[in-house]
Amino acid sequence: MSVEPHKLDPREDTRFDRPDRRGRPGRLPPENSARITRRITALAVGIGVILMVGKTLLWQNTHSVGVLASLVHSGLDMFGAISSFIAVRYAARKPDGKYRFGRGKAESFSAVFQVCLIVFAASHLLEEVVEQIGTNHPLTHSGLAIAAMVFFVIITVWLLIAQSWAIRATGSIAVRGDRAHYLADMFANLFVIIGLAISAFTPLIWADAAVGLFMALWLLYTAYRVARLAWAQLMDMELSEEERSLIIRLAMADPRVRAVTELRTRASGPHIHIQMRLDLDETLSLSEAHDIVLKAEKRLMGDFQAADILIHPHPAGCGHAHGNRRFFSDTLPEKP
């Protein structure tokens, strides 16, 4: 079985517009990425503690289902942040003889743990809402509750801004999971404020329980989003089409490279792994082929500084495809 190569006219201008680098794994040197993720996860844990303690005190004074929903969400945020705090530090360790591909998937396992926490909390909140819907008891200290929730929104927005910057810089899936938690928490706070105001200043006392129901559904949606991110890395999903196109173009920037075939990519925490075959003129010496491969690696490392790269030189025109045929993809080749 032969595999059609990626082809590029050698006469084409090798300059190209590169895709947006923000939010992509493997772009920063591992040390820089680790420093950013360590700091942002520590900040997330601190904010989680503040939100959880503050909302616990607030719920004890108001007995609001909406505040309770937000409290449970903040509790999940804190435990999820602790999980990410540990995971990013473990994932940043250097590969060694025992883990030659590194430990990057620790971030994905942290995300799976967060999904489990979210689903558990959503189930608990649904039970609480069912119990509270028929009570219709008036809320107390509504003004204090609304003021406190506004404060919680402000500090959550500040954290989201910091997390967004960290994701743009590192592409960390653990930080993405954290940000999904806190983004949901921010909207939770906003809806709780609306529910408190409606319940306190209108006859619609049931609005507070309705907010709790909405938050339970929002938690389940958040779990789905985080699960998709974790699934992609745990199952070694290919990088995006933009990233693969960039890899091919970088490899073929040298006109002596006839084609790129058998390209495989995957992300693992802060790292990415790239392997490919370069089709070269069969008359080249081994030394010349080695020089072409080294220069291709250097170009790729310029854009993917945390990449593990494996390139196999191959004589152009040879129809033999290396490896187990089970792993040949019907979708290949993609165009550069």
Rank of each mutant, 00 (worst) to 15 (best):
F201V: 08
S268H: 07
T261H: 14
N189V: 00
A207H: 07
G177D: 05
I272P: 02
P270W: 07
L234N: 15
A197Y: 12
V257G: 00
G195D: 04
Y221W: 11
L213Q: 07
R244T: 02
F152T: 05
L196D: 02
E243K: 08
G177E: 09
A259Y: 00
R266M: 06
A259S: 09
A162P: 04
L234S: 09
G195S: 04
Q163C: 06
W206M: 06
S172M: 03
S172G: 00
D178T: 14
R244Q: 12
M186W: 10
S245Y: 09
S268Y: 08
E241H: 14
W206T: 07
P203K: 07
A251R: 01
F152C: 09
D178L: 12
T265S: 10
E241T: 12
V260G: 01
F214H: 04
E262Q: 13
A184C: 13
L263R: 01
E238N: 11
A188C: 11
D208Q: 05
R258V: 09
L217S: 13
A207N: 08
F214T: 06
R225V: 14
G177W: 00
Q233R: 11
V150C: 13
R168G: 13
I154Y: 06
A232Q: 08
A223H: 09
I198Q: 07
S240M: 07
F151A: 15
T261S: 11
L239C: 03
G195L: 04
A188H: 11
S199I: 06
E242R: 13
T261L: 06
P255Q: 10
A253G: 14
L263M: 10
M149G: 02
A259V: 03
M186D: 11
W158Y: 13
I205L: 12
M252T: 09
A251W: 05
P203A: 11
I272D: 02
Y221Q: 11
D236E: 14
M237C: 12
L183Y: 04
M235G: 10
Q233W: 11
M149E: 09
D208N: 04
M186F: 13
L213N: 02
L183T: 12
Y224H: 08
E243H: 13
V175Y: 13
V226A: 00
L159A: 01
M237H: 15
R168W: 05
Q163E: 15
D254Q: 14
A223S: 13
A197L: 07
Q233S: 07
R168Q: 12
F201T: 08
F214S: 04
E262N: 08
G177Q: 01
T265C: 02
A184H: 02
L246V: 02
L204G: 00
L196N: 02
S199Q: 05
A200D: 10
L246M: 15
V192S: 05
L219S: 09
I248E: 10
V175F: 14
A259D: 06
V175D: 11
R258Y: 11
V150A: 09
A188D: 06
R225N: 13
A197I: 10
I247L: 12
A169Y: 04
L160T: 03
E262G: 02
V150S: 07
S240N: 09
I154Q: 00
M235W: 13
A174M: 03
Y221V: 13
I154N: 04
I247D: 01
M215N: 10
G269I: 07
V192L: 14
Y224E: 05
A207P: 05
A166D: 03
D185A: 08
H271P: 02
Y182G: 01
A207F: 15
